[in-house]
Design a protein around this nucleic acid. Structure first.
Lengths: 206, 206
DNA sequence: GATCCTTCGGACAGTGTGTCCGATTTATTG
DNA sequence: CAATAAATCGGACACACTGTCCGAAGGATC
């Protein structure tokens, strides 16, 4: 029984590994040439598997794209979580939050741009994509709201409707990322993060 | 000769009229269901022309999409220009600029979302789309920079690197529009515009 | 009435998608 | 080791869409 269980687990690990293998290739190709310009044939070939095998792992093209997005956003959350727990001072939290997001963005700007884009665009055609991504968006929104509320408590930020403050902060970050993602030579990450952070702090200051 | 000329002009008008007819349908459908989920057949049918006729006006799908985006952004600029000339006070200019953009956005949120999205996304696959849209982006960036510089002169805004200030303002507006475009029930336009404007003014204030 | 231009409708090749299935390889188990 | 199960392969298939082409039909223009 135990052997059976562990065997099943191993299979799952292998399965996940292969899945990731395909996802990584797809993410790169999607990023390089856009979602519509890459065929399943090509993804399969570059991942070193048969096209039909890809369809074993992903029901269709949309699900593959969704998996790519989910993976990128999971990584984003993961990489942010580390610093998040370390810093507790609101201003610093904001700084590291933005810095972390920029870091991930710089990691694969081409696909990140696509992600920002598709997050909304795909929701239209295939309703499925939205839900999971929206959850991650919510998670980050929750973090923003937390740090804002802390900032209000400590007298650093002026009080306003928390949802509105969260929205304004989120908008600025979203915009900053979108712009950065489409810049050929973005300014140094630390500088960019500092600039946005300082601007936000000033807008929020008591 | 004069008759010839006017005849040619008439033809051009008709041609433009038909073009717009197709563009309007395409814009609606693209907005409703996303770019990839609408076939040229369908656009042609709903526009009441043969599919082959669509290809007389637009070389291919991308060019049609580009035309849709260009048209929307032209309208945007046009509708902003009116108020822009009337107000000269920087804070008011910012307010009307943002209000004008929101107004256009509310006009057809579905496609506007797509526009925000595609502006960057399409640049990847088909290089052609970017240039014209980038120009319009530039135009608005120029307006932002103008009003910022006026604000600095009048002592309303604190001085900083004009490009950076423009970028920060643009980011906030871009983010605000993106968020608003994907909200099912956005807050009243005037309130939303005021909120963003006040936040920006505070961030920029001397 | 002849001519030009536009539109139409349909045929066409090419490409991609998603499904299916038999053949082949690779792992697991007795 | 042999039998069995599972994963993968490779290719065939129907279907849908794109972009091209062309002859036919309709209106306007001279």
């Amino acid at each position: 029984m135990a052997a059976r269980r562990s065997s099943d687990n191993l299979k799952e690990v292998i399965r996940d590994f292969r899945r990731d293998q395909v996802i990584d290739v797809a993410r790169r190709l999607f990023g390089e040439r856009g979602t519509t310009e890459v065929s399943m044939d090509e993804i399969a070939a570059q991942a070193g598997v048969a096209r039909s095998t890809v369809y074993v792992y992903f029901a269709n093209r949309d699900e593959l794209l969704r998996a790519c997005l989910k993976r990128m956003l999971d990584q984003l959350l993961e990489s942010i979580a580390v610093d998040w727990e370390r810093d507790t001072e609101p201003a610093q939290r904001l700084r590291t939050l933005i810095g972390g997001m920029f870091e991930r963005l710089d990691d694969n700007p081409a696909f990140f741009r696509l992600a920002l884009v598709t997050q909304e665009a795909v929701v239209q055609g295939s309703a499925a994509v939205g839900s999971e991504l929206a959850l991650i968006g919510l998670e980050i929104a929750g973090m923003i709201q937390d740090l804002y509320l802390e900032g209000v408590s400590s007298g650093l930020f002026r009080p306003m409707e928390p949802d509105r403050a969260t929205s304004l902060i989120g908008q600025q970050i979203y915009g900053a990322m979108s712009v950065r993602a489409s810049e050929l030579i973005p300014m140094p990450r630390a500088d960019a993060a500092a600039e946005v952070t300082e601007f936000l702090l000033r807008g929020l200051s008591a």
